[in-house]
Simulated assay, not measured.
Amino acid sequence: MLEVAQVNQHYGSSHTLRGISLKLARGECLALLGRNGVGKTTLLKCLMGVLPVSSGTITFEGRDITRLKPHQRAAAGIAYVPQGREIFARLSVEENLLMGMASLSGARAAIIKQEIFTLFPVLKEMLQRRGGDLSGGQQQQLAIARALLQEPRLIIFDEPTEGIQPSIIKDIERVIRLLRQRGDIGILLCEQYFDFAHALADHFVVLSRGEVVASGGHAAMDSGDVRRHLAV
C-alpha cells in the first residue's frame, strides 16, 4: 500500500533523513518510534508533501507520489492527524467537521457523520462549541474525526497521545483498534509512548538521528532496546 524507498531529506546543510525505507500493507498498523528530534515528524511531512525529499521515492497503492502536492495526496486517499492537532480554534466543532466532509456527497456525508459520532460521541454533544474551547483530548478526538471524514485509505497519526489525559488515550486506542480491525485502511502511527504503540502495531520502525536503527514485527523487536531509543 505504502512504500518508502531510500528517502533522504536535507534542511539547509543538515541531512535530516538518511536512506529511510519502510513498507505498510493495507489493514496493518506500522508504528514509527523514536525520541523527539530524530526525524519522525520530518518523515511524515515528506509523506504528505509538506516537505520535499532530496532523493528516494514514495509510492502509494502502486503510484509514485514523490512529487505530488499535499492536496493531491489527500485526494489520493491519505489523511494526516498532525502533532498539535491543528484544528480551527475559532470555528465550531461542527464547522471543523464540515471541513473534513468537503469532498463528500450529501447522502454519504450524513452516513459517515453518524459513524463518526458513534466513534466519538462527545463531539455530538459539543457541535456548537468552538474548537479552541475544547480540552486537549477533545481537540485530538476532533482532529482524528476530521481526518476520518475524508474516508482515507491511509491515515497517519503524529504523536496522538502527546499531552492527552489517560481516559482519552484509551478512547483513541479503541478507535485505532477498530480501524485496524476493519482491514481496509492502513495506519501509520508515530509515537514515543512504547506501550501504546506496542498494543496496536503489527510492525515497528525505530528512528535515531534520521535513520532506521531497528525494524520488524513483535517477535523481532527487543523491547528493552527500543525503550533505550525512546529514552531522553
Results as ranks from 00 to 15, higher is better:
96 N>F: 00
81 V>G: 10
99 M>N: 07
107 A>L: 02
98 L>Y: 04
106 G>L: 02
92 S>A: 04
93 V>K: 00
100 G>Y: 00
84 G>T: 10
80 Y>T: 05
78 I>K: 05
85 R>H: 11
95 E>F: 04
105 S>Q: 07
103 S>P: 12
80 Y>C: 07
78 I>T: 08
80 Y>H: 14
108 R>H: 01
94 E>A: 15
105 S>L: 05
92 S>M: 06
108 R>T: 05
90 R>T: 15
95 E>R: 12
107 A>R: 06
77 G>V: 05
78 I>M: 15
79 A>Q: 06
90 R>D: 13
101 M>K: 02
87 I>H: 04
94 E>C: 10
91 L>Q: 14
102 A>P: 12
103 S>E: 12
86 E>T: 01
77 G>R: 01
84 G>N: 06
79 A>I: 08
81 V>R: 01
81 V>A: 09
79 A>H: 05
78 I>L: 12
106 G>V: 03
98 L>V: 05
104 L>Q: 11
104 L>G: 01
97 L>E: 02
90 R>P: 06
102 A>D: 10
79 A>N: 07
100 G>A: 00
84 G>M: 03
99 M>A: 12
89 A>Y: 02
92 S>F: 01
91 L>D: 12
103 S>Y: 04
91 L>N: 07
107 A>K: 07
85 R>V: 11
82 P>Y: 00
92 S>G: 06
105 S>E: 15
106 G>E: 05
88 F>D: 13
102 A>M: 13
91 L>M: 15
87 I>V: 15
83 Q>M: 08
102 A>L: 09
107 A>T: 07
95 E>L: 10
78 I>P: 15
98 L>I: 10
81 V>N: 07
98 L>S: 09
103 S>H: 11
103 S>T: 15
97 L>W: 08
110 A>K: 12
96 N>G: 04
107 A>I: 06
110 A>D: 09
81 V>Q: 06
86 E>P: 14
99 M>Q: 10
86 E>W: 03
103 S>C: 12
97 L>G: 07
91 L>P: 13
95 E>K: 10
93 V>D: 02
110 A>M: 02
89 A>C: 11
101 M>Q: 14
101 M>E: 14
105 S>Y: 03
88 F>V: 09
86 E>V: 04
100 G>Q: 05
82 P>F: 00
104 L>D: 09
93 V>F: 08
95 E>M: 10
85 R>D: 13
101 M>T: 09
